[in-house]
Amino acid sequence: MSAARVPRALVVGEALMDVTRMPDGSVAEHPGGSPLNVAVTMARQGIDTTLAAHVGDDHFGALIRAHLAESGVTLANANVSLPTASATATIGADGSATYEFDLRWNPNELPDLEDFHLVHVGSIGAWMAPGADVVLDLVRRAHAAGRAVGFDPNVRPALAPSVPLLRERVLELAALSRFVKLSDEDADVLAEDPGGPLSVLRLLAGHGPALAALTRGGESALLCSGSDEVEVRVPPVEVADTIGAGDTWMGTLLAELLRRGWADRTSFAADELQSLGHAAVAAAAITVSRPGADPPWRDD
C-alpha cells in the first residue's frame, strides 16, 4: 500500500441493538455491539471506517443503519439475511452493566483486505462459531499481507466456548495482531495462574503485539511495548453508565495510531505510550459520562 494513501480501517464483528434497563425501571434503545462502537469511535474521530457486520432488514436494522450513517461509518453487510442482533444491559446502582444477548454470527462475505490499512476484530465476532473461523482466516491473511491488526477479546463468559478453547483462540489472535487491548474482566476470565490481570497482559504482549494495553475501569490503564510499560491515570468523571467505554478506548487508540502514521510501527517508547494512553482515557471518560454507547466526536 502506498505511503501517500489515506489510511482506511475495516472493523469486523457484531452490530446489535442495546436495550438498556435502568435502576429506576426505565428502558432505552441504543445501537451497540463492541465492533460497531469501535467503528463509530474511529469514524467520529475522522478515520475512513468500514464495518462488516450482520444488520438485518428490520426495525433494529434501520436504527443501526441510521446511526452508522450519522457517524460516518460505511456498512458492509456480512449477512443481511439474518435478523439484527440485540443485547439487554441491566444497569446497576453503581453504573456497571450486565448483559444478555440474542445474536448469531455467520458472515458469508467480507471486504477485500487490499482496500484497508488496518483491520480490527474482537468481541463475540472473534470467538463465536461459526463466524469465528472466518474472522481468524481474515486475520491470518491480514497478518501475512503486512496489514496492521487490532484485537480486543471483550470476552463474555455466558456466550464464549469453554475457557481453555477461548484462551487458545485469544492467544492465537493476539500473536497475529499488532495492537491488543483487554479489560481486567477479560484478564480474570483468561488467567491460568494467580498472577492476576497484569500477568495476562504480559502474556499477550509476549506473543507478538507491538502494543498491548489493559484497562481497569475507573483505575489507571496500563500500556506496554517490549520492555517499556506505562500507567495512565483515569480522570475523575460522573458516570452515567459504562456501556461502550472500552470500545471507545480501543477505537481512539487505533484512530490515534492511524492519524499519527504509527500503525506500521513495531515498537513504542514510553512517552509515546503515555500520549496514546492519555488520548484513549480522555475519550472513554467522555463516553461514560453519557447514557448508552455514545463515543465522542473529534472536537469533543
Rank of each mutant, 00 (worst) to 15 (best):
H278I: 14
E272T: 08
A269K: 07
A269G: 14
A255R: 01
I286E: 11
L258Y: 02
A263V: 08
G261W: 01
A269H: 12
R260G: 05
T266K: 12
L257W: 03
L257V: 02
A269Y: 00
D271T: 15
A263L: 01
Q274I: 15
G261S: 04
I286R: 14
E256F: 00
V288G: 05
E272C: 03
P291R: 14
R290Q: 11
F268P: 06
A279D: 13
T287I: 10
A269V: 05
H278T: 14
A283F: 10
T252I: 03
Q274V: 15
A269C: 00
S267I: 00
H278D: 14
R290W: 10
P291D: 08
T252N: 06
A293K: 00
G277W: 03
A283M: 13
W262C: 01
A284I: 09
T266W: 04
A293R: 03
I286F: 10
L257Y: 03
T252Q: 05
V281R: 13
E272P: 04
S275G: 05
R290L: 10
A280I: 08
T266V: 12
T287A: 07
F268D: 06
L258R: 02
A269F: 00
A293E: 07
T266G: 14
P291I: 11
L258N: 00
S275I: 10
T252M: 02
A285L: 11
H278R: 15
D264M: 09
A270Q: 09
A282D: 15
V281G: 04
G277I: 06
A263K: 01
A280W: 07
Q274S: 13
A284L: 12
S289M: 08
A255V: 01
P291T: 13
A293S: 04
P291F: 11
F268V: 06
R265W: 02
F268L: 12
A279G: 09
A270R: 11
V288R: 05
L254I: 10
S289Y: 09
T252L: 06
A270V: 08
A282L: 13
A293L: 05
D264R: 14
R260S: 14
A282I: 10
A269L: 13
R265Q: 15
R260M: 08
L253A: 03
R260V: 00
G277R: 09
T266M: 03
L276R: 09
S289Q: 05
P291W: 13
R259Q: 12
S267D: 12
E272S: 11
A255L: 04
T252D: 03
P291M: 05
W262P: 02
S289K: 03
T266P: 00
A280G: 11
F268T: 10
F268G: 05
W262R: 02
